[in-house]
């Protein structure tokens, strides 16, 4: 099989952040009419450079841990890898099928049942309705939610939602799995099965990119680690040098 790969060269992502004023058309029109008024033309819009000149090269079997403070660009990098954010400068190339577990809410309709949500997520991930029906038993089994699957998702606890999302997202054979923080959801039992499934992915020469603050998780899943600071990335280093990276 052809291995998965991720290549980013000089990746820079900037995006505007809109304040409440900048989100109002009426206020924008008022500003446009009132040329040279007190308010600046771009009132409330701040350009943020979320990532600057990130270089990254990952190959089959790599499990990268992303560390860094809140707002350091971890999630932006994951979103860029998922294809949601496009680069302003530089390039991103991802080979392989991507599954992203960045937000539990993806395709989750709180008023729909667990089964319906699995179906919805599966369709978004690219499965056909028939493929979903074929896998439904296996996915349902993996969630371990049993009879709760017939109930609306809004009645679930956060842990149960996490199980559902993880089971549905990894039901698609993916080569690249992007995960943000929340892998720690679910109880010890679920952690064990989730762990097995992640290892299987890595065995299939997949790539895992995981953003987390927890050193034990990093040591458990990752073989490489990268630190982001204000959108600037450190070198990708071996997981054994995690402590060095945490200190700097």
């Amino acid at each position: 099989m052809t291995g998965a790969s991720i290549t980013c060269t000089d990746l820079t992502i900037r995006f505007p952040v809109y304040g409440a004023d900048a989100k109002s058309l009426k206020k924008a029109l008022a500003r446009a009419v009132n040329v040279g008024g007190v308010l600046g033309r771009h009132a409330g819009v701040t350009d943020v450079t979320a990532l600057s000149n990130v270089n990254l090269r990952l190959g089959a079997g790599d499990r990268l841990g992303l560390i860094g403070h809140n707002g350091s660009g971890k999630t932006t990098l994951l979103r860029a890898l998922s294809g949601a954010y496009e680069p302003d400068e530089g390039t991103i190339e991802v080979q392989g099928r991507i599954a992203s577990l960045l937000d539990l809410g993806l395709g989750i309709d709180p008023s729909a049942t667990g089964y319906d949500n699995i179906r919805l997520r599966g369709r978004i991930a690219g499965l056909s309705s028939r493929e979903i029906d074929e896998r439904m038993d296996e996915i349902a089994d993996f969630t371990g939610l049993g009879p709760f699957l017939a109930m609306p998702v809004k009645t679930y606890s956060a842990g149960m939602q996490g199980r559902l999302a993880f089971a549905a997202a990894t039901a698609v054979e993916c080569d690249v799995l992007l995960m943000d923080e929340w892998i720690a959801v679910g109880d010890a039992d679920f952690q064990k099965v989730a762990h097995k499934r992640l290892l299987k992915l890595v065995e299939r020469a997949g790539i895992l990119v995981l953003a987390t603050h927890e050193a034990p998780l990093l040591k458990l899943y990752c073989n490489k680690v990268m630190k982001l600071e204000g959108g600037v990335a450190s070198e990708v280093v071996d997981i054994r040098r995690l402590d060095e990276l945490l200190k700097t």
Binding site: G83, E86, G90, T91, C174
Partner: peptide, 9 residues
């Protein structure tokens, strides 16, 4: 599902 992506700035 996308098996290959190439995106540039």
């Amino acid at each position: 599902t996308a098996t290959h992506m190439l995106r540039t700035g």
